[in-house]
Amino acid sequence: MLRVVKPRNARSKRALEAREPKEIEDPRTAIFVKGTSTGDKLNAAMKELMALKRPEAISFSKKNTVRPFEDTASLEFWAHKNDASMFVIGQSTKKRPDGLTFVRMYNGKVLDMCEVGVDNFVSMEHFKTKKSTPGHRPLMHFASELFDTHPRLIQLKSLLLDFFGSERLEGVHLSGVEHVISVQLAPTSPELSSTVVDTAVDETKHLPTVHLRTYTVSAMASGTKIPRIELVPMGPSLDLSLRRHQQADPEMLKAALRRPKLKKQDVEKGLGKRKKNVEVDEMGDLRGRLHVGKQNLDKLQTRKMKGLKSARDQDSESDEDLEEQGTKRRKAV
């Protein structure tokens, strides 16, 4: 347990304040940890993933005895020390060769984990093409219906999205969009697409291979307003197979997904908060009630009757003899 540090001077106070929770968070810092044994392939894969993640990446150069699925104490310690909320742990064993574990933290505790095996790795150096500038935001591309339906792949998508591009941006310069990170799956096996889920069978066997590719983007004039996009492989490219995982604790996930209250200006724009005279009915349709002003019934045109004419009444009262003349006069007017 780390003691709570009381800042002794203004500089350390500022440093501590920078670590405090913020409404709109900084991008997640990832720590790259090597396990007790990592092969060349895994080392290279981690190095290049780090190159993509830079500058929000910290590398632990020494080997560490770390087993994230058994004990998370050291992860919590490192996360606290480095103010990091993500880990990429490389570990190669006989049983699970070339394993990469993505770990995500919430409030200093492990939220969820997903282990993938690196089946195939092609380095950046292999592609003799232009590379993207470090620190530029990638476009993310996910292709498969399973990313919306299968819990394992929903988690993987969430993790990878959080890893590469979870920073909230106000805007982007289109000239700064340099690369795409594409995550695609192999065709879904019939065992996986069948609706009957057999829990007894090892599910990971049927999970499709994940292809992670990176491309640089170039826009070509197409003759229309929208340019045609062309991609050039940049590297690294990885083929991953899903292995062990740990889903997020529902309570913890609920706390982690809590959003800040909407600002007043957002409410005025119509986001959030119920507005007056507007309600959603049982079918989920938005129904509004309009208020028209009070109707002036005095000017309401009813059936025209001679006897109701006000001017006539006055005339008849004042002078009955001049009745005919009065009507004539009115007609003239």
């Binding site: 405090e20 929770p21 913020k22 409404e23 968070e25 997640r28 909320s85 995500r104 933290m105 919430y106 409030n107 939220l111 969430s158 999205l161 959080d162 979870s166 909230r168 941006l169 106000e170 805007g171 982007v172 310069h173 289109l174 997020a248 996930l253 706390a255 982690a256 997904l257 809590r258 800040p260």
Partner: peptide, 18 residues
């Protein structure tokens, strides 16, 4: 600068709300 709308995907926070 191309302005981006708020994201629709829900991603967990790293730290609790202030």
């Amino acid at each position: 600068l191309t302005l981006l709308p708020p994201p629709t995907t829900l991603l967990p926070r790293a730290k609790p709300l202030p």
